[in-house]
Amino acid sequence: MIDAMLLPFQRRLLDPAAHTLARKGVTADQLTLAGFGLGLLAIPALAFGLYGVALVFILLNRLADGLDGAVARLTTPTDRGAFLDIALDFAFYALVPVGFALASPDQNALPAAVLIAAFVGTGSSFLAFAVIAGQRGLRPEAYPSKGIYYLGGLTEGAETIALFIAMCLLPGLFPVLAYLFSAACLITTLTRWWQGWQAFADEPD
């Protein structure tokens, strides 16, 4: 919901580091893969109840996710990079609830499953819209630098990261937070279905 508003601030914050990394020959794909690897380390940390450690890895993952796009804009953005970025992002989002489920199966398994299902709804509607929009040559005005059509909604990247931070700081509230965010994801999915139904009602010229 607020990703577009945060983009200018994010770019001002990350551009100096991105320039340094680009000068040193670090590529956007390397940052994407490194960030995903760091994010994976959050899962065993969560499973063992090391929520502070997990939060550090989650934040490092998100930092790398911001830097890979900034470096790509300074060098040569590629379709492969755009694919890798979004594919690993969605995998990371789905794996974090698994870590909480492993930490406390009796308490967290069901809400984690519901949250993952909610992520499938938001992710599949996002990607399905992007595929058709790409075939029609559409570009999102709010996200002109994105490698694929970026369809907004009530639950976007910023809200998801805020959720993960809250879960790590208040792990006992994981079920409540998971169910509340799942409801918000349902709204996002339904609105994206409606947007797709409306946007693609007519065949392109």
Rank of each mutant, 00 (worst) to 15 (best):
L6R: 07
G152Q: 05
Q30Y: 00
G49F: 02
R192G: 11
L154P: 00
L33N: 03
G81C: 06
F100R: 04
I2N: 13
A113S: 14
R139V: 15
L151H: 04
V120D: 07
P8H: 12
V114H: 13
A94S: 15
A82M: 07
D3E: 15
A199S: 15
F48E: 03
G49Y: 01
A34T: 08
G37Q: 05
V131Y: 13
I2P: 12
G99M: 04
L55T: 03
D3Y: 12
I58Y: 00
V26R: 04
L127I: 14
A82T: 04
I148K: 02
Y143M: 12
E203C: 04
V56E: 02
Q195F: 09
A70M: 06
A109M: 14
Q10I: 11
G81W: 02
L170Q: 03
F200T: 09
Q198K: 15
L41P: 00
L186A: 15
L110G: 08
G137T: 07
A130I: 06
S124I: 12
A128M: 11
N61K: 08
Q195C: 05
Q135N: 11
G157T: 05
G81R: 02
A178N: 04
L102R: 09
K146A: 14
L177S: 01
E159G: 02
T189S: 13
L154E: 05
D106S: 15
V26N: 09
L40V: 04
I43H: 01
T188V: 12
G99H: 03
A101L: 11
T188R: 03
N108W: 12
F90T: 01
D202Q: 14
P144G: 03
A17F: 15
D85F: 02
L138T: 07
L169M: 11
P140A: 15
W194M: 10
T78M: 06
F48K: 03
F119D: 01
L38M: 08
R62I: 03
Q107P: 02
P77I: 07
G196F: 10
L13F: 15
Y149V: 05
K24T: 11
L41R: 03
L177R: 03
L110Y: 10
R62Q: 11
V71C: 09
L14T: 12
Y179K: 00
P105G: 14
L180Q: 09
T78C: 05
R12W: 14
P8G: 14
P144W: 06
F181K: 02
A22F: 11
H19E: 13
L95C: 13
A47P: 00
D202W: 04
A18W: 01
L46P: 00
L13K: 05
Y150T: 01
Q198S: 09
A87V: 10
A4N: 12
S182R: 02
Y150W: 14
L13D: 10
L95K: 07
Q195M: 13
I43R: 01
L102N: 09
V56N: 03
R80P: 00
